[in-house]
Structures are given as C-alpha cells and as structure tokens.
Simulated assay, not measured.
Amino acid sequence: MATTLRQTATPALAHALSAAERGLPVFPLSPAKLPALRSPHRDEPGGPSLCRGECGRPGHGVHDATTDPAGVRALFAAAPWATGYGIACGRPPYRLIGIDLDVGPADGAVTPGPSRGPRANPLRDLGDLRGPAPDYLRESAPDSVAALQHLAFQHLFTLPDTVVVLTPSGGRHIWLTGPPDVVVPNSAGRLAPGIDVRGAGGYLVGPGSVTARGAYRLAPGTAGLAPAPCPRALLRLLTPPARPRHARDRPARGHGLVQFVLAAHEGQRNTRLFWAACRAYEHGFGDALTEALVDAAVRTGLNEREARATIASAARLTSGP
C-alpha cells in the first residue's frame, strides 16, 4: 500500500500545481480527504493550539493552502503519502464557494446516465427550470438536486455554467465565486437537506484527487470553464442576516438545541448532536453550549469522548478563516 500511495502522490502534486497556477490555493490531502500533515502543535502541553500557520510550520490544514509553486512542492514533499489536494474556499482571487450536492445512491455506487456530447453540463438543465433534472442526475437519488431546483424556482435565480466536480459517491460539487465584501459561512444541510456549503475556512477536494472511495473528476462539459459568479439571490440564501446575539436570546435558542439532542433515539444520536452543534456555532454560541450538548448526548447513550469529537467536527466545519 505504501508503494501505491507514493506513486499516486505524483499525479496529486501535478494536479495541485495546475490548480495553483490558476490562482486556487491548495494543500495536500490524505486518502481519507483530510489534511495529510498532522498539526505541529499536537504534542504541546496545554491542549491544542489556536495557531493557524503563524508559527511558520506546515500542518495547519486549510490554512497551509498556497498558490506558490515552491510552497506547494514543499507541502507535498512533507506529505509524500498524499493522494489528493484540497482547495481553500473564500480566498482571493476567486473567493470560491462550493455547493456540495449529495446525490449518490444509498449503496454509494454511481449510476451513469446517457452521454449528451460536449454540452453535457449538469447545470445547464438544472439551471433553466424548464423541466426535470437530466437523466445523469435523476438516476442518482436526486433529493438534493430537486431541493436546489426548488430553491432556484422559488427565489428566481438561474445557475450559471460553471465548474462541476463529480465525487466518487455520485455527488456534485458546484463551484461559484463570491464578491470580496461577502463572507459565506460553511454549513451542513442548512440550505436544504443533502446540500452542504463550503465557504470561508472550508475546502473542496480538487479534481484529480484519489481517495479511499475513488477519484474526483471534472463533469463533462465543464473542464474549460472558470468558476462563475454566484447568483445574487442564491448568495443571499448563503449569507442569512445576522441574528441578534443578546445574552438573553442565547438560553432560549440553546435550550431548543439541547432538547433536540435529548430527543434522539438510537441510530440518530450522532446525527442530531452534529446538527445541533452546527446550528449553535453558526449562530455564535457553540463554545458556550458545548458542555450542555455533551451532557445531553451522554444522557442519550453516547460516550463523552465521542460526543466531544462530534462537536469538534461541527466547530471545524462551521469555523471562519
């Protein structure tokens, strides 16, 4: 296996360098789609460091991302086992926004649809609102696609021709760009079920990456495209107005999230905890609610270590740059 990973690292570096040349900040990923380099602060006394690369050492995940070819080569040299690369969202010049559509079948297999020639852009039929999703989307469990179509119809926007990346599980990553004065947060399922958003502080797996589940590749018809500007109506959905954060508001909102976790049955405890933690962090009081969420999760049957790991994952997903 080690030999295979070393051989795969060469094309991963080549793809990463190509992306960096186009102005996309990149860093190496492991086959698990996680940052390939471990934190240099992992063994420091006093717990994890809040350093985001200021120390000058690699191992800070998305904060390592760079467009400098020498910097990219250095990162991959430090992680020769890397089989893919991440692209940092929210960073200039593109300020990338990733719309992650989970459209894979339950068994994780990809069901290919008929070829439609050079115009087979998954967004052209999705965005024009003139009919159902195309076969190559409809045959792959299209709940999130239908949800995005509904949002487009309801809020009167059309998805532009843009870069689309196909995931090994049958999903779609839609690449859009944001304006310099807008910060799009990361979110999981807030826009609609099955739709995650990668914004500031998040990253997308780049095309050409190889993971434990397979390869990421550009969708037919999108290879020659540049990321297109996010439609204004969709941008407003991705950046909801800030809610008041008065201290008196927090217990009520926090109480509802805790009750949501407490109502979890076996098989949904982790999912409910992750959802509640994401909502808490998105609204600015995740750290304050952590202990209450951990306590609620433990009362439903999760162990404390698992609960804290789930909340930490929610914090990473929704964190800003």
Rank of each mutant, 00 (worst) to 15 (best):
T83N: 13
G189N: 08
M1Q: 14
P180M: 05
G286K: 06
D43H: 14
R245I: 02
R269E: 13
L126H: 06
A16K: 06
R22A: 07
A212P: 01
D43V: 12
T167W: 02
P142W: 06
R213P: 03
R299E: 13
D107F: 10
V294F: 04
L75N: 03
L225D: 00
V294M: 11
V258T: 09
P93V: 02
S169V: 05
P251K: 11
S30G: 04
A141P: 04
G84R: 00
Q149N: 01
R116Q: 01
G98I: 07
D43C: 12
I97R: 04
L235P: 12
P132A: 10
P227D: 00
E21N: 08
L159Y: 09
P160N: 11
G256S: 14
P244T: 02
R130M: 01
P92R: 04
P229H: 07
R6G: 06
L34P: 07
S169N: 08
S115Q: 12
H150S: 15
V205A: 05
H150L: 10
A152M: 05
L50M: 11
A188H: 14
P244H: 00
W175A: 05
R245E: 10
G53R: 05
R57I: 01
V184P: 00
P227H: 10
L148G: 04
R95L: 12
P241T: 14
R269S: 08
M1H: 13
V145T: 06
P231G: 14
R6E: 09
L302R: 12
V145Q: 03
V258W: 07
L126W: 13
D249K: 05
P220S: 08
C55L: 09
P160Y: 11
P251C: 05
T300Q: 15
R190I: 14
R217H: 00
L159V: 07
P185I: 04
G256Y: 04
G256E: 09
P244S: 05
Y281I: 03
G108R: 10
A315M: 11
G113A: 09
T271L: 15
F153P: 01
H173A: 06
G47Q: 06
R172K: 09
G47H: 01
R42V: 15
A215Q: 03
A264N: 00
A288Q: 11
V164H: 00
G256M: 12
T162E: 00
G254K: 11
G127P: 04
A312Y: 11
R305H: 14
P132K: 02
P241L: 14
R248A: 15
A228Q: 04
G127H: 07
P48I: 13
T290E: 15
Y216E: 06
T83Y: 03
I87W: 01
R42M: 14
N270W: 09
I174S: 00
L293V: 13
T111Y: 07
V298L: 11
P244M: 03
P227W: 04
G108P: 07
S209E: 05
G224R: 15
P93A: 10
F27C: 07
P31Y: 01
L137W: 03
L29W: 08
H255S: 14
G208K: 02
G171S: 00
E282D: 00
G86T: 12
G104F: 07
L34V: 06
G171W: 05
G59C: 13
P179K: 08
A146I: 09
P80N: 07
G254T: 11
R248Y: 15
E291F: 11
A120W: 04
R116D: 00
G98P: 01
R308C: 10
A277Q: 06
S140Q: 15
A215M: 08
T211H: 03
R217W: 08
L5W: 12
